[in-house]
Design a binder for these strands. Structure first.
Length: 278
DNA sequence: AAGTTCGTCAACCGCGGGGAG
DNA sequence: GCTCCCCGCGGTTGACGAACT
């Protein structure tokens, strides 16, 4: 049957966007809002396909895009999140305010990937001379005999990750969730998750194992229709691994999206350094 | 100065998920 | 249940500029 191409390529502009096109797109989105990209492309008069418009807006024109170099804190965070999530660029980007998945992906491919692999990266735009080859170190994990692999969600057929367990109300002590405080983000997160009829008889080790994609992911998926990738969010990880409630304050998606909270990257990094963290 | 190599990053491509009919 | 459409994601490409020979 074949899939229809996203747009007819006849008569459409391709390649780099011009300043005029940018202006048109920005003005149109200001007036009509995001979404309906295909319609947007037609209605705005831009000779671009919807995909192209969406990409241009999300990766370049959005007002909240952060420009400039990736900071050291951000870099650390990307490395840690990548270790945890693999190439889930959009999820990683979701934790870095103002950064786009494309930007992070590019940064990883050009810089961090090499770093993470143990290659000493030369300062940017400096080529190595013949006698100054890149030094290749053994990856720390490999050297220790244990290769750290990112979670491969696709390979595990586990795109719908489950939260297999939520502590019962009697477990509240260890999560610092006050059941009386129905307005707290902790409580709301608990409610959201607990309404999914989740099991309550898993140990932390089992949770960790499930979360890391080792073991019964498919079985759990079959036994529970809960959808979404929320387990990939740091707040859920915190719930699972008994991390401090600090996470809920700074790392719930809602807080970030709605209140545009400035995230303390240092605190996150220290949290990742916790021994229980993968 | 000219040519070559390499790094960066915007943009494109194809695929899959999910909703509507 | 099937098909179509829209959207979002991750992988890849290619233009461009800087560094090097």
């Amino acid at each position: 049957m074949g899939r229809k191409p996203c747009c007819s390529k006849k008569g459409l502009n391709r390649g780099a966007w011009t300043a005029i096109e940018d202006k048109i797109l920005t003005a149109y989105i200001k007036d009509h809002g995001e979404g309906k990209w295909r319609n947007l492309a037609k209605s705005s008069g831009l000779k671009r396909c919807g995909k192209s418009c969406r990409l241009r807006w999300l990766n370049y024109l959005r007002p909240d895009i952060k420009r400039g170099n990736i900071s050291h804190d951000e870099e650390e965070l990307i490395i840690r999140l990548h270790k945890l999530l693999g190439n889930r660029w959009s999820l990683i980007a979701g934790r870095l305010p103002g950064r786009t998945d494309n930007e992070i992906k590019n940064y990883w491919n050009t810089t961090l990937g090499k770093k993470a692999a143990g290659v000493v990266v030369q300062s940017s735009k400096k080529r190595k001379s013949a006698g100054d080859q890149q030094t290749v170190r053994e990856p720390p994990a490999a050297a220790a005999g244990t290769l750290v692999q990112p979670i491969r969600t696709k390979a595990l057929n586990c795109t719908k990750v489950l939260v297999p367990v939520i502590p019962s109300p009697s477990d509240h002590d260890c999560h610092s969730i006050n059941p009386e405080d129905t307005n707290s983000s902790e409580h709301q997160a608990y409610q959201t998750l607990s309404t999914n009829s989740l099991k309550t008889d898993y140990t932390t080790e089992q949770l960790y194992s499930n979360f890391m994609g080792i073991g019964c992911c498919d079985e759990l998926q079959a036994s529970n229709g809960t959808s979404n990738n929320d387990l990939s969010t740091a707040s859920d990880c915190s719930l699972l691994f008994d991390q401090p409630t600090l996470f809920f304050k700074e790392w719930t998606m809602n807080d970030y999206l709605q209140d545009n909270v400035t995230i303390d990257l240092g605190s996150l990094a220290s949290l990742f350094d916790n021994e229980e963290w993968p």
